[in-house]
Design a binder for these strands. Structure first.
Length: 457
DNA sequence: CGGATTTGACCTGCGC
DNA sequence: GCGCAGGTCAAATCCG
């Protein structure tokens, strides 16, 4: 990914004090005030030209809005300075006052320029991330299509860590598709994304044949459904996620004495979204919630607000999963423990919010499960507050070094089970695709519109 | 009284 | 084909 470092641009800048010395040395002593902000030199043409070339090499955009903005500011300051230079040098106090005004103007412009530069950086980063996510998703879907029935060695498939779905692995579990790090075989799928969207246009629980809620065709490929499972500590029987649910069944699943409850979204008639809730057999305080399906109705604003940000986080999560092999993640910070299970026919992403990232122990994953922790650099957008991490901090995180930031933010996130649900929803929305009937908000977060609404269930 | 929950029966898919 | 297990239905029950 192109790494646009604002510091590179700041190296172009030269102190306006030196500029003033060149322009009007007589007033410089007076104007040499303590400027708390590094000032920008718009006029060092040779230097700027040189460095601009470097920048342009890195960003070969013809019409860079950032540079256009800079040129406008240059013109403004040019005008102001020209006025200043026409002042008679004999009138020292008058000149000093003008110079002071000029300094204020410069400071204002510098602030504005820096702000625009930062904004530009953010936008570029977001664009890069979206592009990257798109390509990863495209590859992912292509692979899912190509290998839905490919048999793999299934030794050790039965594993108690397969979250929520405690039933013994069936033969379908062996039909595992590779994940994005497997770059083989994109041929023969001219537009896998469109295919995926078509496949995910209707979703329902797998083995159900309910006449009322049947929305899937048996002939469709098995990877049309995606489950997102969330493990979170909660004494409450349910995690509030901003949607309304109605319980329609309960079962004692084999291997877990805790009953599994089945819920259906009741925010709209015929909404296909279901969720299962079950306590973990190993730790009764852990509540495992599994979602499937896309909402076919608008979501409450309070639900979509968080959903949008978590969608971004989920996209980054998925992107991370594709760019690096699972093994390479083993030493990276966890935010939270996220596991992508390829167990067909329902690939399941599991977010384990019960694991303290600083005392991290990798939960034994089933065979053919890729452990794909969220990368630390996804933090800034997780809570819907797009904080721009200082490059240094991000770099530290990239270097897999624990930082106080990682610890603090992870703890904050992990302590809020609602976040995990929201994140799960977002991930499901990305993998599961979009049914095309959702409104704007719902299309960003099709799954469950998670929020921090209390008592919304 | 209406909506939500409970619970036994039923359906379906999978393994043997 | 049979048995098992997961998932769903729908009548009964509960609750505000």
């Amino acid at each position: 990914m192109e790494n646009h470092d604002p510091r590179h641009e700041l190296t172009l800048l030269r102190s306006t004090d030196s500029l003033r010395q060149e322009l009007n040395p007589t007033v410089n002593a007076k104007v040499h005030v303590h400027s708390p902000i590094p000032e920008v030199d718009f006029f060092s043409l040779p230097k700027n030209t040189d460095t601009d070339n470097n920048v342009n090499q890195k960003q070969p955009h013809q019409e860079d809005p950032h540079h256009r903005h800079t040129n406008v500011l240059k013109d403004l300051v040019d005008t102001a300075l020209n006025l200043n230079l026409t002042c008679p040098t004999s009138d020292l106090s008058k000149s000093a006052a003008k110079d002071e005004n000029l300094r204020i103007l410069l400071n204002t412009l510098q602030k504005e320029l820096l702000r625009v530069q930062e904004e530009n950086c953010k936008l570029k980063t977001m664009l890069d991330q979206i592009t990257k996510n798109y390509h990863q998703l495209q590859l992912f879907v292509a692979l899912q299509k190509q290998k839905p029935y490919q048999k793999m060695e299934t030794n050790g498939m039965m594993c108690g860590q397969h979250l929520l779905d405690a039933r013994p692995r069936t033969k379908l579990d062996a039909k595992v598709a590779s994940f994005p790090d497997d770059t083989s075989g994109q041929e023969g799928h001219p537009d896998p994304v469109e295919d995926a969207i078509e496949q995910s246009s209707s979703q329902s629980w797998g083995s159900s044949k309910s006449p009322k809620f049947e929305e899937s065709k048996p002939s469709e490929l098995p990877f049309k459904k995606t489950r997102v499972s969330v493990r979170a500590r909660s004494e409450a029987p349910l995690i509030s996620d901003g949607c309304q649910w109605r319980k329609y069944g309960q079962k004692i699943a084999k291997g877990n004495p805790c009953p599994r409850a089945y819920y259906r979204c009741t925010m709209a008639v015929g909404c296909p979204v279901r969720k299962q809730v079950q306590r973990c057999i190993e730790d009764k305080t852990v509540l495992i919630t599994t979602y499937e399906g896309n909402h076919n109705h608008p979501l409450p604003p309070s639900a979509t607000a968080m959903a949008n940000s978590t969608s971004a986080a989920a996209a980054m999560f998925l992107s991370s999963s594709g760019s690096t092999s699972a093994g390479a993640f083993s030493s990276m910070p966890y935010i939270p423990m996220a596991t992508l299970s390829a167990s067909a026919p329902f690939p399941t992403i599991t977010l384990d919010m019960t694991t303290n990232p600083m005392q991290l122990h990798r939960v034994p994953s089933p065979v053919f499960t890729s452990s794909l922790p969220l990368h630390a650099s996804t933090f800034p957008q997780l809570l819907g507050h797009p904080i721009m991490l200082p490059h240094k901090v991000t770099h530290l995180l990239d270097q897999q070094q624990p930082s106080f930031m990682t610890e603090t933010m992870t703890a904050a996130i992990a302590s809020n089970p609602n976040f995990t649900v929201a994140l799960a929803a977002a991930i499901s929305s990305i993998i599961g695709g979009n049914d095309g009937n959702n409104n704007n908000a719902a299309s960003v977060l099709p799954l469950n519109g998670a929020s921090i609404l209390p008592g919304s269930t």
